[in-house]
Design a protein around this nucleic acid. Structure first.
Lengths: 387, 387
DNA sequence: AGTGGTTATGCAAGCGGTTACATTTTTACA
DNA sequence: TGTAAAAATGTAACCGCTTGCATAACCACT
């Protein structure tokens, strides 16, 4: 009660509150949890309260709340009115315990701070909330102990109805456990053996990007690929390299190892790899690369900056193509093969919903390929002829 | 193929309908019903199984599992051994229902894709998992309907023990609800009236950055501030501007409105704002700005790129200072005031633990100021004297 | 009105833990 | 060795909801 009063009082000064003012109030005994112990009496309304208020049984209330359309319109209305009147909200733990459904999805990512992961998670989050599900996030930042503990402890606590694994190569053991617990699993970003997944065709994407350079007339093309910093992103770097090389080979071009570098998917990393490449094999050399296919936009941007630094003109001296269509790709006028991680997240959720809501069952492919689009911007052009 | 099997979410024996459903799908390539039926025999162990196996009561098992140190060493050992033997994992819903604690924290962010938020969440996540808590993520990407639904529906479903709000200005109503439900709340990134918060002192940080420029001898300093794209990031832009202006004023320098621009915290935004500034007031003009204080590193990088584009040399023609110490700041050799969002997330969790585990109660300040550090790199230097 | 088939609702047994309180076992000490 | 206090364990009443099954109400048609 007091606290509410206090909050009202504060709300008045909300607009001109400053640090100073707050510290003045720091003695105020406003501690939410303190009242926790006292407050046992006026707990939140339970389903019984609603039932009583509406003059029906709890079973009926439950049915209304779960949209079992087996309740008459009149009763439904009365129940809903009671719900509103009492500001009733269901206890999800009670509901989960009784029904075995948690309405909660576990999302496991190798890290949060990489563009791709962030965007997938955003897509997943918004789709889940639309479906009435919550998202419990597990970020395996270090790959080691955290990962173990996630799988050994958390996912198994019956906290989630299903799992979405982003760019993660699960071990057989981990798969087995999930399987044993009957948790559906959807993977995003790379096929996982025996698991429903959603992924772009990395080989094809690379081929596309490389082919674009070949089509422009490039004959000496370098590649900056990815490293697997998270021990998670399995075959991605390899697949992309494969696509690159197969495009070269198909065009009758040699694969030259000295034109290959790797980096960690960051701008800095791309910069370093490109700097090395350009210093060892300057594009201005008669035999130097006239184009670089970089396996992510961020690295491509680093590459672009490195090029600028050594006085290379993009695309005149060297063409650069990336993958992702990162927000910055447009800014840097970078040609790229777009993928749409937000959509991927969304689709993963739809896939899961198909599984979790059997009525709407739809037997899909094990692996669903995803859209990609070549977006041609100003960082690629035919090689200059005067060389 | 096995994978298909376990995609069928028949989590409980009683869920007959699902089973039936499954068998009707005869086109399914897998002998699903059999394996599923078999497996259902060994339904996950419950606390009773453990109790029986260990020859104790469920109460004792529960006590062991919850570290109530009231169980003898020998019994504890026996119980733990039974837990291992049966691969027992507690049902969190049952536990929550009975105890009223969910071991789950709700984290609300305006979006995931901005550096600051991402890092705070990472910090929170890793700290929570260390404390045995899960993190349920709510991303208010659009600020509108999603936000409403989060507060109206999800947070209230007794799904979380507490809430961490990142850079979010909650309404009085939202605060009241949380309070009514007795959910402790910690805010990160800006003081919130009447709420425990963790934030850097934006005014001071700005003053520091600006003062650095003044100390270097700059007299005409521009400022690129932030816009409040998420309708969430309350007073941050204003506070930073205030710090900027107060530093100027304290140094006896005029505040010039034409030297002020805003952007949306992105590189692109910073670039656009800087391009405009530099075209209207070229640093090479006798009366142009010799330095720019930019309110985030990403924007500062945009500013730096804009400067390069118009042929300005940084720092000779124009000094640039940012805030954050973003990973790229180092790469671009950007002077900045560092803040540590990962740590901020971690600290928010510690704060929450203090509240949630009363025995360790420690009555702290309402708002805890956070560390910042001026990191001087190559993007700032004394103004060139020849002007 | 009687009858069989729907449709709507209620009953009550769980779901799997937690914990106040009761009871038994140990420990400490005269 | 006896006994009170402390420590360890057991008993059982919840926690708040879901759902199979039973029952009641309704609805055409004979």
């Amino acid at each position: 009660m007091q606290a509410v009063t206090f909050l009202h009082g504060v709300s008045q000064m909300r607009n001109h509150c400053s640090l100073k003012q707050l510290t003045t109030h720091s003695q105020m005994p406003v501690v939410l949890s303190e009242s926790a112990t006292h407050r046992r009496k006026d707990t939140v309304a339970s389903i019984d309260d609603v039932a009583r208020h509406a003059g029906v049984s709890t079973a009926t209330v439950s049915r209304v709340l779960n949209n079992k359309n087996t309740v008459s319109a009149r009763t439904t209305a009365r129940v809903l009115q009671a719900v509103t009147a009492l500001e009733y909200v269901m206890s999800s733990s009670a509901s989960s315990l009784a029904s075995g459904r948690t309405k909660n999805i576990g999302v496991v990512v190798p890290a949060l701070s990489r563009w791709y992961f962030t965007n997938v998670v955003e897509g997943v989050e918004s789709a889940l909330i639309r479906h009435g599900y919550d998202l419990t996030l597990y970020s395996l930042n270090d790959g080691g102990p955290a990962r173990r503990s996630v799988f050994e402890h958390f996912l198994l606590r019956q906290r989630v109805d299903a799992v979405i694994a982003v760019s993660l190569e699960l071990t057989t053991d981990e798969l087995t456990r999930l399987h044993a617990l009957n948790k559906p699993l959807v993977g995003v970003g790379g096929p996982l053996p025996g698991v429903r997944t959603l992924s772009i065709d990395d080989v094809e994407v690379s081929r596309l990007a490389t082919q674009h350079l070949i089509d422009l007339g490039h004959r000496r093309i370098a590649h900056i690929g990815g490293t697997d910093e998270f021990e998670a992103d399995f075959h991605l770097p390899a697949n992309r390299r494969e696509g690159f090389e197969s495009a070269l080979t198909a065009a009758g071009l040699p694969v030259r190892d000295e034109f290959f570098g790797t980096a960690d998917f960051t701008i800095q990393g791309g910069h370093a790899a490109a700097a090395k490449l350009f210093s060892e094999h300057p594009p201005t050399d008669p035999d130097g690369p006239t184009a670089v296919f970089v396996t992510s936009d961020e690295m491509a941007i680093g590459c672009l900056l490195a090029a600028r630094e050594v006085g290379l003109n993009v695309p005149d001296d060297v063409s650069i193509v990336g993958i992702d269509n990162h927000e910055l790709a447009r800014f840097f006028d970078l040609t790229t093969v777009a993928q749409y991680p937000r959509d991927q997240g969304r689709k993963a959720v739809e896939m899961l919903m198909d599984v979790l809501q059997p009525e709407q069952w739809r037997h899909g492919e094990l692996n669903t390929p995803l859209d990609t689009t070549l977006i041609i911007r100003g960082s690629t052009a035919p090689p200059t002829t005067h060389r």
